[in-house]
Design a protein around this nucleic acid. Structure first.
Length: 129
DNA sequence: CATATGACGACAA
DNA sequence: ATTGTCGCCATAT
């Protein structure tokens, strides 16, 4: 029975990454969020860089809308013109996000969770069908 | 243990 | 608007 005791538990890092990936999955298509914003939602204040790290660790095949995470100033974090930059821009535009002069208008496309909640909260009313 | 690094962010010039 | 600096914090060496 106990021959599985060496099963390694998820490291703190792994659990943190999971929370981050999960938070990113909540960003609606057509919207974007900043690294810091995701960090806060994932319960990691001042953890913007950790979000970047988690994304870099994102396993192939794991479906997470990583393209929706950009810097707080509305820029794509990758070097302009790089392959990754173009891929992200392409995906965002495919969702209707406008990138003008290499930047996204955060006032217009930034995801606002609380506002989003307001639309989900009254679900009880709709759940009744 | 000391440094360096990075898909960040805030701020000063 | 740009650019540089510094703070932040997990990892890598």
């Amino acid at each position: 029975m106990g021959y599985k005791k060496t099963m390694p538990e998820k490291s703190a890092t792994q659990k943190r990454n999971e929370r981050i990936w999960q938070a990113i999955c909540d960003i609606p298509s057509g919207n974007v969020a900043s690294y810091g914003q995701i960090a806060d939602i994932a319960g990691i204040p001042r953890g913007a860089r950790q979000v970047g790290y988690a994304l870099r660790q994102l396993p192939r095949g794991r479906e997470v809308p990583w393209q929706r995470v950009i810097t707080s100033t509305g820029r794509i974090a990758f070097e302009a013109g790089s392959r990754q930059f173009r891929e992200q821009a392409k995906r965002l535009r495919a969702e209707g996000v406008i990138i003008k002069n290499g930047r996204v208008d955060m006032h217009r496309f930034r995801w606002q969770p609380d506002l989003d909640e307001l639309l989900w909260k009254p679900s009880a009313t709709w759940d009744e069908r």
